[in-house]
Amino acid sequence: MKVRGFFRKYGEDYLFALPYMLLFTVFTVLPVLISVVLSFSYFNVLESPEFIGLGNYTKMFVNDNLTVKAFSNTVIIAMIVGPGGYLLSIALAWIISEFPRGLRSVLTLLLYAPSISGSAYMIWQIIYSGDQYGWLNGILMSLNLIYEPIQWLTDTSYMMVAAIIAILWTSLGTGFLSFIAGFQSMDRKLFEAAAVDGIKNRFQELWYITLPSIRPQLMFGAVMSITASFGVGDIINGLFGFPSTNYALYTVVHMLQDYGSTRFEMGYASAIATVLFLLMIIINKVVQKVLSKVGE
Protein backbone atom coordinates (compact mmCIF):
# COMPACT_ATOMS: atom_id res chain seq x y z
CA MET A 1 0.00 0.00 0.00
CA LYS A 2 3.06 2.21 -0.30
CA VAL A 3 1.96 3.48 -3.69
CA ARG A 4 -1.41 4.57 -2.40
CA GLY A 5 0.21 6.40 0.49
CA PHE A 6 2.56 8.17 -1.88
CA PHE A 7 -0.30 9.35 -4.03
CA ARG A 8 -2.35 10.44 -1.07
CA LYS A 9 0.57 12.52 0.07
CA TYR A 10 1.84 13.99 -3.21
CA GLY A 11 -0.83 13.24 -5.82
CA GLU A 12 -2.39 16.69 -5.69
CA ASP A 13 1.02 18.36 -6.01
CA TYR A 14 1.78 16.44 -9.19
CA LEU A 15 -1.67 17.28 -10.51
CA PHE A 16 -0.96 20.97 -10.03
CA ALA A 17 2.36 20.77 -11.86
CA LEU A 18 1.06 18.46 -14.59
CA PRO A 19 -0.58 20.83 -17.11
CA TYR A 20 2.40 23.18 -17.25
CA MET A 21 5.04 20.45 -17.19
CA LEU A 22 3.25 18.49 -19.92
CA LEU A 23 3.19 21.44 -22.31
CA PHE A 24 6.70 22.44 -21.31
CA THR A 25 7.95 18.94 -22.09
CA VAL A 26 6.18 18.72 -25.44
CA PHE A 27 7.14 22.18 -26.72
CA THR A 28 10.54 22.78 -25.13
CA VAL A 29 12.23 19.64 -23.82
CA LEU A 30 11.12 17.26 -26.55
CA PRO A 31 12.24 19.56 -29.40
CA VAL A 32 15.75 19.76 -27.91
CA LEU A 33 15.93 15.97 -27.75
CA ILE A 34 14.55 15.60 -31.29
CA SER A 35 17.15 18.06 -32.47
CA VAL A 36 20.00 16.10 -30.91
CA VAL A 37 18.75 12.80 -32.34
CA LEU A 38 18.15 14.21 -35.84
CA SER A 39 21.61 15.78 -35.86
CA PHE A 40 23.05 12.30 -36.44
CA SER A 41 20.87 11.68 -39.48
CA TYR A 42 20.11 12.71 -43.02
CA PHE A 43 16.51 13.90 -43.04
CA ASN A 44 14.68 15.80 -45.78
CA VAL A 45 11.15 15.57 -44.25
CA LEU A 46 9.80 13.52 -47.19
CA GLU A 47 11.78 10.34 -46.55
CA SER A 48 12.34 8.91 -43.10
CA PRO A 49 15.62 9.90 -41.38
CA GLU A 50 18.72 7.88 -42.22
CA PHE A 51 21.47 7.45 -39.63
CA ILE A 52 24.78 8.94 -40.82
CA GLY A 53 26.76 9.16 -37.57
CA LEU A 54 28.82 12.31 -37.22
CA GLY A 55 28.43 13.14 -40.91
CA ASN A 56 26.60 16.42 -40.30
CA TYR A 57 29.16 17.59 -37.79
CA THR A 58 32.14 16.85 -40.04
CA LYS A 59 30.35 18.54 -42.92
CA MET A 60 29.75 21.58 -40.77
CA PHE A 61 33.34 22.09 -39.74
CA VAL A 62 35.23 20.64 -42.68
CA ASN A 63 33.23 21.29 -45.83
CA ASP A 64 31.04 24.30 -45.24
CA ASN A 65 32.78 27.61 -46.01
CA LEU A 66 30.00 29.70 -44.60
CA THR A 67 30.04 27.89 -41.25
CA VAL A 68 33.19 29.65 -40.11
CA LYS A 69 31.69 32.99 -41.12
CA ALA A 70 28.38 32.25 -39.40
CA PHE A 71 30.01 31.14 -36.16
CA SER A 72 32.50 34.00 -36.07
CA ASN A 73 29.80 36.59 -36.80
CA THR A 74 27.59 35.08 -34.11
CA VAL A 75 30.38 35.12 -31.56
CA ILE A 76 31.48 38.67 -32.47
CA ILE A 77 27.93 40.00 -32.15
CA ALA A 78 27.28 38.05 -28.95
CA MET A 79 30.62 39.12 -27.44
CA ILE A 80 29.86 42.80 -28.00
CA VAL A 81 26.10 42.91 -27.57
CA GLY A 82 25.95 40.47 -24.64
CA PRO A 83 28.44 42.12 -22.27
CA GLY A 84 27.69 45.56 -23.75
CA GLY A 85 23.97 45.33 -23.11
CA TYR A 86 24.62 43.74 -19.73
CA LEU A 87 27.02 46.41 -18.46
CA LEU A 88 24.85 49.16 -19.90
CA SER A 89 21.84 47.71 -18.06
CA ILE A 90 23.73 47.61 -14.75
CA ALA A 91 25.14 51.12 -15.18
CA LEU A 92 21.83 52.67 -16.16
CA ALA A 93 19.85 50.83 -13.49
CA TRP A 94 22.33 52.03 -10.89
CA ILE A 95 22.25 55.65 -12.06
CA ILE A 96 18.45 55.55 -12.10
CA SER A 97 18.45 54.38 -8.49
CA GLU A 98 20.40 57.55 -7.57
CA PHE A 99 17.51 59.77 -8.62
CA PRO A 100 14.18 60.57 -6.92
CA ARG A 101 11.14 58.43 -7.58
CA GLY A 102 9.29 60.40 -10.28
CA LEU A 103 12.34 60.84 -12.47
CA ARG A 104 13.17 57.18 -11.86
CA SER A 105 9.84 55.97 -13.29
CA VAL A 106 10.09 58.18 -16.37
CA LEU A 107 13.65 57.06 -17.11
CA THR A 108 12.75 53.39 -16.58
CA LEU A 109 9.89 53.67 -19.06
CA LEU A 110 12.04 55.49 -21.64
CA LEU A 111 14.89 53.02 -21.46
CA TYR A 112 12.80 49.85 -21.27
CA ALA A 113 10.28 50.75 -23.99
CA PRO A 114 12.39 49.79 -27.06
CA SER A 115 12.79 46.21 -25.84
CA ILE A 116 9.03 45.60 -25.60
CA SER A 117 8.03 47.40 -28.77
CA GLY A 118 7.91 44.43 -31.11
CA SER A 119 9.30 45.36 -34.50
CA ALA A 120 9.75 49.05 -33.71
CA TYR A 121 13.44 48.48 -34.53
CA MET A 122 12.44 48.81 -38.18
CA ILE A 123 12.76 52.58 -37.63
CA TRP A 124 16.53 52.06 -37.91
CA GLN A 125 15.95 51.38 -41.57
CA ILE A 126 14.92 55.01 -41.96
CA ILE A 127 17.74 56.23 -39.73
CA TYR A 128 20.30 54.23 -41.72
CA SER A 129 18.73 54.82 -45.14
CA GLY A 130 21.49 55.10 -47.75
CA ASP A 131 20.50 58.41 -49.39
CA GLN A 132 20.69 61.95 -48.03
CA TYR A 133 17.11 61.56 -46.75
CA GLY A 134 18.22 58.92 -44.31
CA TRP A 135 18.43 60.42 -40.83
CA LEU A 136 22.03 59.60 -40.05
CA ASN A 137 23.26 60.72 -43.46
CA GLY A 138 21.06 63.81 -43.34
CA ILE A 139 22.41 64.88 -39.97
CA LEU A 140 26.04 64.14 -40.80
CA MET A 141 25.73 65.93 -44.14
CA SER A 142 24.06 69.04 -42.75
CA LEU A 143 26.87 69.24 -40.19
CA ASN A 144 29.33 68.89 -43.09
CA LEU A 145 30.94 65.86 -41.47
CA ILE A 146 30.46 63.80 -44.63
CA TYR A 147 29.83 64.97 -48.20
CA GLU A 148 28.46 61.80 -49.77
CA PRO A 149 25.74 59.64 -48.21
CA ILE A 150 27.04 56.40 -46.72
CA GLN A 151 25.33 53.07 -47.48
CA TRP A 152 25.03 52.01 -43.85
CA LEU A 153 22.87 48.96 -44.64
CA THR A 154 24.81 47.55 -47.58
CA ASP A 155 28.44 48.72 -47.24
CA THR A 156 30.18 45.79 -45.55
CA SER A 157 32.57 48.08 -43.66
CA TYR A 158 29.70 49.71 -41.72
CA MET A 159 27.12 46.93 -41.49
CA MET A 160 28.45 45.26 -38.37
CA VAL A 161 28.64 48.52 -36.39
CA ALA A 162 25.21 49.58 -37.63
CA ALA A 163 23.73 46.23 -36.58
CA ILE A 164 25.34 46.32 -33.15
CA ILE A 165 24.03 49.81 -32.38
CA ALA A 166 20.49 48.84 -33.41
CA ILE A 167 20.66 45.64 -31.35
CA LEU A 168 22.00 47.48 -28.29
CA TRP A 169 19.02 49.79 -28.61
CA THR A 170 16.73 46.82 -27.86
CA SER A 171 18.95 45.28 -25.20
CA LEU A 172 17.59 46.87 -22.01
CA GLY A 173 15.13 44.08 -21.32
CA THR A 174 14.04 41.89 -18.42
CA GLY A 175 17.54 41.88 -16.90
CA PHE A 176 17.51 45.68 -16.74
CA LEU A 177 14.27 45.62 -14.74
CA SER A 178 15.74 43.01 -12.44
CA PHE A 179 18.74 45.28 -11.69
CA ILE A 180 16.48 48.27 -11.06
CA ALA A 181 14.52 46.16 -8.59
CA GLY A 182 17.75 44.95 -6.99
CA PHE A 183 19.13 48.44 -6.49
CA GLN A 184 15.83 49.70 -5.10
CA SER A 185 15.36 46.94 -2.57
CA MET A 186 18.80 47.38 -0.99
CA ASP A 187 18.88 47.60 2.78
CA ARG A 188 19.57 51.24 3.67
CA LYS A 189 21.38 50.25 6.88
CA LEU A 190 24.13 48.64 4.80
CA PHE A 191 25.02 52.00 3.29
CA GLU A 192 25.04 53.76 6.64
CA ALA A 193 27.29 51.08 8.09
CA ALA A 194 29.56 51.32 5.05
CA ALA A 195 29.86 55.09 5.44
CA VAL A 196 30.95 54.58 9.04
CA ASP A 197 33.43 51.94 7.87
CA GLY A 198 35.12 54.43 5.55
CA ILE A 199 33.48 54.02 2.15
CA LYS A 200 34.27 57.41 0.61
CA ASN A 201 32.12 57.80 -2.49
CA ARG A 202 29.26 56.24 -4.40
CA PHE A 203 31.55 54.29 -6.71
CA GLN A 204 33.26 52.50 -3.84
CA GLU A 205 29.83 51.90 -2.37
CA LEU A 206 28.70 50.38 -5.69
CA TRP A 207 31.67 48.04 -5.93
CA TYR A 208 32.01 46.93 -2.32
CA ILE A 209 28.43 47.00 -1.07
CA THR A 210 25.80 47.20 -3.79
CA LEU A 211 27.00 44.81 -6.49
CA PRO A 212 27.80 41.94 -4.10
CA SER A 213 24.35 42.24 -2.53
CA ILE A 214 22.51 42.10 -5.83
CA ARG A 215 24.51 39.11 -7.08
CA PRO A 216 21.35 36.97 -7.62
CA GLN A 217 19.94 39.65 -9.92
CA LEU A 218 23.29 39.92 -11.69
CA MET A 219 23.14 36.18 -12.40
CA PHE A 220 19.59 36.35 -13.71
CA GLY A 221 20.40 39.35 -15.89
CA ALA A 222 23.41 37.55 -17.34
CA VAL A 223 21.25 34.64 -18.44
CA MET A 224 18.80 37.02 -20.09
CA SER A 225 21.60 38.93 -21.87
CA ILE A 226 23.40 35.84 -23.14
CA THR A 227 20.23 34.24 -24.44
CA ALA A 228 19.17 37.43 -26.20
CA SER A 229 22.60 38.09 -27.70
CA PHE A 230 22.59 34.76 -29.55
CA GLY A 231 19.15 35.22 -31.05
CA VAL A 232 19.47 38.44 -33.01
CA GLY A 233 18.48 36.98 -36.39
CA ASP A 234 15.12 38.77 -36.77
CA ILE A 235 16.46 42.26 -36.30
CA ILE A 236 19.31 41.62 -38.76
CA ASN A 237 16.86 40.20 -41.33
CA GLY A 238 14.54 43.14 -40.84
CA LEU A 239 17.20 45.79 -41.37
CA PHE A 240 19.72 44.22 -43.70
CA GLY A 241 17.65 41.64 -45.58
CA PHE A 242 18.43 37.95 -45.93
CA PRO A 243 21.01 37.17 -47.10
CA SER A 244 22.82 40.40 -46.22
CA THR A 245 25.38 41.88 -48.63
CA ASN A 246 28.29 39.44 -49.09
CA TYR A 247 26.91 37.47 -46.14
CA ALA A 248 28.51 40.15 -43.93
CA LEU A 249 25.94 39.56 -41.19
CA TYR A 250 25.37 35.84 -41.74
CA THR A 251 24.95 34.25 -38.31
CA VAL A 252 24.24 30.75 -37.00
CA VAL A 253 20.58 31.68 -36.70
CA HIS A 254 20.56 32.48 -40.42
CA MET A 255 22.32 29.23 -41.18
CA LEU A 256 19.52 27.42 -39.34
CA GLN A 257 16.91 29.31 -41.31
CA ASP A 258 18.75 28.59 -44.55
CA TYR A 259 19.08 24.83 -44.11
CA GLY A 260 15.92 24.27 -42.08
CA SER A 261 13.27 26.26 -43.91
CA THR A 262 14.79 26.80 -47.36
CA ARG A 263 16.77 23.67 -48.19
CA PHE A 264 14.90 21.19 -45.94
CA GLU A 265 18.15 19.59 -44.77
CA MET A 266 16.70 18.94 -41.33
CA GLY A 267 19.49 16.65 -40.14
CA TYR A 268 22.15 19.21 -40.92
CA ALA A 269 20.04 22.06 -39.49
CA SER A 270 19.57 20.03 -36.31
CA ALA A 271 23.34 19.58 -35.98
CA ILE A 272 23.74 23.38 -36.26
CA ALA A 273 21.01 23.88 -33.67
CA THR A 274 22.66 21.39 -31.33
CA VAL A 275 26.02 23.16 -31.56
CA LEU A 276 24.35 26.53 -30.94
CA PHE A 277 22.48 25.06 -27.97
CA LEU A 278 25.67 23.67 -26.43
CA LEU A 279 27.50 26.95 -27.07
CA MET A 280 24.83 28.92 -25.20
CA ILE A 281 24.65 26.52 -22.26
CA ILE A 282 28.46 26.44 -21.88
CA ILE A 283 28.80 30.23 -22.02
CA ASN A 284 26.00 30.59 -19.49
CA LYS A 285 27.62 28.15 -17.10
CA VAL A 286 31.03 29.83 -17.41
CA VAL A 287 29.55 33.29 -16.83
CA GLN A 288 27.67 32.03 -13.75
CA LYS A 289 30.94 30.71 -12.33
CA VAL A 290 32.64 34.07 -12.92
CA LEU A 291 29.76 36.05 -11.43
CA SER A 292 29.66 33.92 -8.32
CA LYS A 293 33.06 35.50 -7.50
CA VAL A 294 31.80 39.12 -7.59
CA GLY A 295 32.83 40.90 -4.43
CA GLU A 296 34.68 37.91 -2.94
Binding site: T28, F230, L256, A273, M280, N284
Partner: peptide
Protein backbone atom coordinates in the same frame (compact mmCIF):
# COMPACT_ATOMS: atom_id res chain seq x y z
CA UNK B 1 19.67 29.67 -21.10
CA UNK B 2 19.05 29.03 -24.77
CA UNK B 3 17.14 30.82 -27.43
CA UNK B 4 13.94 29.51 -29.01
CA UNK B 5 15.53 29.58 -32.47
CA UNK B 6 17.34 26.39 -31.48
CA UNK B 7 14.07 24.48 -31.30
CA UNK B 8 12.30 26.07 -34.27
CA UNK B 9 12.72 23.08 -36.60
Amino acid sequence: MFNATVTAI
